[in-house]
């Protein structure tokens, strides 16, 4: 479902003496439907960079990144937009929303974008928020004023609202208490059972051991760092 071949990335910092930084080199990996693969490696090894390259908000200089039948390295912007709407979900560590939009709508939005009716989308959103223990009295408020953990849970609810066939999870259990961590892990297990291909970054080792089928050490691809 997710297939990387000989992928490399460099950053060129034009305003800092045109410094060229090689981040990852020659990455090849693939993730099958129903499989969850963890990216590991020390901070700065390029885990998040690799994740962003797969999502397409970082450009890739060489190689191919196929998600289903789209190569994100070559795809036109609108093909990437369509892919993100329908196929590829991403739960980042930060919630970015238009201020003032109620939490229930924030969570329902990915479903509205694929054409689900307002009623059905909000019902699904409500079920997820309830599962993630966001009190109902907060649903009509914007999440911008919520605590870090609450925002993270809203972000997860939003990420799992639409049933994407492929998902990227960046630290989904960070800043969660034991109860909510358990809920998130079970969401991941359900997604796997229904055939979703997942790539994740988990600093939480117990979580990683429980939901991930394989680990890939990204430092193996970092230029100048011994694997």
């Amino acid at each position: 479902m997710i297939d990387l071949k000989d992928v490399s990335k460099t950053f060129t910092l034009h305003n800092q003496g045109s410094a060229v930084i090689e981040v990852v080199n020659d990455v090849s990996l693939s993730v099958a439907p129903g499989e969850c693969v963890a990216l590991t490696g020390a901070s700065g090894a390029g885990k998040s960079t690799l994740m962003r390259m797969i999502y397409g908000n970082y450009l890739t200089q060489a190689g191919s990144i196929r998600i289903g039948d789209v190569d994100i390295v070559q795809a036109e912007p609108r093909a990437v937009i369509a892919l993100r709407r329908e196929v590829l979900g991403y739960v980042s560590q930060f919630l970015r929303v238009v201020p003032r939009v109620p939490t229930l709508e924030v969570v329902a939005e990915p479903l509205r974008a694929v054409g689900v009716s307002a009623g059905a989308a909000e019902a699904r959103a409500a079920a997820l928020l309830e599962k993630l223990n966001i009190p109902q009295r907060l649903w009509s408020l914007s999440p911008t004023t919520f605590s870090g953990g609450e925002q993270q849970r809203v972000n997860i609810a939003r990420g799992f609202a639409h049933a994407y066939p492929a998902m990227l999870l960046d630290e989904p259990t960070a800043s969660l208490d034991a109860t909510n961590r358990e809920v998130v892990l079970s969401l991941i297990e359900e997604a796997k059972a229904s055939g979703v291909a997942i790539i994740g970054i988990f600093h939480d080792e117990a979580a990683r051991a429980r939901v991930c089928d394989r680990e890939i050490d990204v430092s193996a691809f970092t230029p100048g760092v011994a694997a």
């Binding site: 060129t12 034009h14 305003n15 397409g56 912007p77 937009i81």
Partner: peptide
């Protein structure tokens, strides 16, 4: 030119890098 989040998160041209930073 490109996807909005790509241009903002990984700008390629010197001027876009300056603008974003």
């Amino acid at each position: 030119s490109g996807l909005t989040d790509q241009v903002l998160d990984d700008p390629q041209h010197a001027y876009s890098q300056l603008l974003v930073s």
